[in-house]
Computed example of a mutant assay.
Amino acid sequence: MRENNFSSNKDVIKVLAVGDIMLGVCSLNKIADNKTIPNQLLRNPHEITKYVKPLFQSADVVFGNLECVFSEEFYALNLKNIKLLIAPPDSSILLKENNFTILNLANNHILDHGVKKVRETINTLENVGIKYIGEPTKLKKKQIEIIHVKNKKIGFLGYNLCEQGEQSSIEEILASIKKNRSSVDILFLSLHWGWGSEHMEFPSPSQVELGHMFIDHGVDVILGHHSHVFQPVELYHNKIICYSLGNFIFDMDNEKNRKSGIVEILIDNDNNLSNKLIPTEQVENYVLRVDEQKHNTDHLIVSNYLVKLSPDEYAKTAKIVKSQYNKEILFDYLINFYKYPLTFHSNTVRRWISKFLSK
């Protein structure tokens, strides 16, 4: 199943899946140097993905995890009153042009700016014709999104298992799988998971256990995200578990956050699955396709993933990794201190204190 060995069949369905999409502002370095993703999009909405855009045009379904909201409020923001993870509604054009079919909204950041902004985001997506799953306000009260492709019904479910945002339970997800399994030919499950182990390059023991359980209960493909780092894709019982698809578009500066990949999944007439990884990297806000001959990614697609650490060892390692990442953010803030106005400093410190107290 590792090779797309039936890709020449015209009846085969091609699904491309990417990780986190953040079209707002996050990086302190990018803010300081005024090289933000929104500014680049407003100058030219076609540039950021121009090197990978041809890949998406041939796909029947394109999936991603939307890690920001679209809001008109963006146009009123400036360096003195900047808000993270808010994107201009016009930037949704980029996603439509790249053939995005469906986006996951079930994550820990979609509610950062309240329900009103989520509904504004939904309106933006509906206006450009992009479907969505995991809508956290429960306004639509719809569990599954079914896409009809080449006489098949491809179902998508989306859930957030992180402690921030609208968190779902394992029981809720299992009930949804049971309820919707018989209504589709192939069932995709989008999972925002791995709370506390951000930036880890491999999944936790509990994620592996959960992934196997969801497959055993009827899911065909799991599309994971939240770590901001691409993690291995496991082939389990002829099904696919993408533990983390990493960042597709995100302004993080760390090299391992900028390296990612597009997972191509093919579905044949008999619902057999085949997949491959197309490595990518973000350079100066551009998404580039990486030379697969120079960057061997075979180790990122594995059969029957072997857990590397015990739960306690994993938790200790994750804490160290996250601490190092936070130190890098603090360092970036300090070296760029003189570039920000006083109001930016007060807002930043207030936000960090609020995050610390919430823990």
Rank of each mutant, 00 (worst) to 15 (best):
P311E: 03
H237P: 04
N247Q: 11
G24P: 02
L157I: 01
S182R: 05
K30P: 00
A175E: 14
L266K: 02
N78A: 03
S204I: 10
L334E: 09
E166A: 13
H109Y: 08
F356C: 01
M213V: 08
P54N: 11
I335C: 06
E135L: 06
E328C: 03
V349F: 15
E198F: 05
I93M: 11
T297D: 04
K96G: 06
V25M: 03
S244E: 08
S206C: 03
E201P: 00
D33M: 04
L42Y: 02
I301T: 13
M213Y: 12
E67C: 10
L111Q: 09
S27C: 10
K152W: 02
V149H: 07
I48Y: 10
I177D: 03
F250W: 09
Y75P: 04
G129S: 02
P54Q: 04
P205R: 12
D253P: 03
S58Y: 06
I186K: 11
D33G: 03
T101R: 03
I186R: 05
Q164W: 04
K117R: 11
Q57Y: 07
K10T: 01
S27P: 05
V263S: 03
N275T: 12
E166S: 07
K239V: 09
N9Q: 10
V287A: 08
E3S: 11
A175W: 04
I133S: 08
S204N: 13
C242W: 06
F6P: 06
I177V: 13
L187R: 09
N127M: 08
S58N: 15
N39C: 01
I21W: 00
W195L: 01
H226Y: 09
S8N: 14
G19F: 06
I267C: 10
F188D: 11
Q164A: 08
D20I: 02
N107Y: 09
S346I: 15
I353Y: 12
E163V: 10
A315H: 13
S182H: 04
I241D: 08
D11H: 13
F331N: 14
K96R: 15
N108T: 06
S354N: 14
K80I: 00
K117H: 14
H148Y: 09
V115Y: 15
K150M: 08
D312Y: 07
I353P: 00
G224T: 01
L84P: 01
S183I: 04
G158T: 02
L103H: 05
E97R: 14
Q324T: 11
